[in-house]
Simulated assay, not measured.
Amino acid sequence: MIYALADHAFSAACNAYGKTSLGVNTSIQFMESAKPGDKLIARATEVKRNFRTGFYRVEVFHGENLIVTMEALAYRKSHYFIDSNDSTQ
């Protein structure tokens, strides 16, 4: 479940520009465990982005404690899933 949370944060970050992105690779480190009922927060940070790839760091916290880190690579397709020429904006 913790990996799913980190992966979801990664997905939101790499698709935030409206361009379809696919996860290519992840490397995750579990430094502490979580217990049932713990409130976890995931934060994804874009480290670098270019035309075809994006590099991300995801951190999962339980309170102030960093319990998981994940490095992730996304492939950025040329297709936008949001129409940038939408006249209703």
Rank of each mutant, 00 (worst) to 15 (best):
M1T: 12
I2F: 00
L5Q: 06
H8Y: 13
A9F: 06
F10C: 03
A12Y: 08
N15R: 12
Y17S: 13
G18V: 02
G18D: 01
T20D: 01
T20R: 11
G23I: 08
V24M: 15
N25I: 00
T26A: 11
I28N: 03
I28H: 06
Q29V: 07
F30W: 09
M31E: 12
M31Q: 15
K35Y: 09
P36W: 09
P36E: 14
G37K: 14
G37V: 03
D38M: 08
D38S: 07
L40D: 00
I41R: 10
T45I: 10
V47M: 14
V47W: 03
R49I: 07
N50M: 06
N50W: 05
N50P: 02
R52A: 10
T53L: 14
R57K: 15
R57Q: 13
R57F: 02
V58F: 04
E59M: 07
E59V: 04
V60G: 02
F61G: 04
F61A: 06
H62T: 07
G63Y: 07
G63N: 14
N65F: 01
L66R: 14
I67F: 07
I67T: 06
I67W: 04
I67M: 12
T69N: 03
T69Y: 03
M70D: 00
A72F: 02
L73G: 01
A74S: 15
S78L: 08
S78N: 14
H79A: 07
Y80Q: 11
F81Q: 05
S84H: 11
S84Y: 11
S84P: 09
S84N: 12
D86F: 11
D86G: 08
S87D: 08
T88V: 04
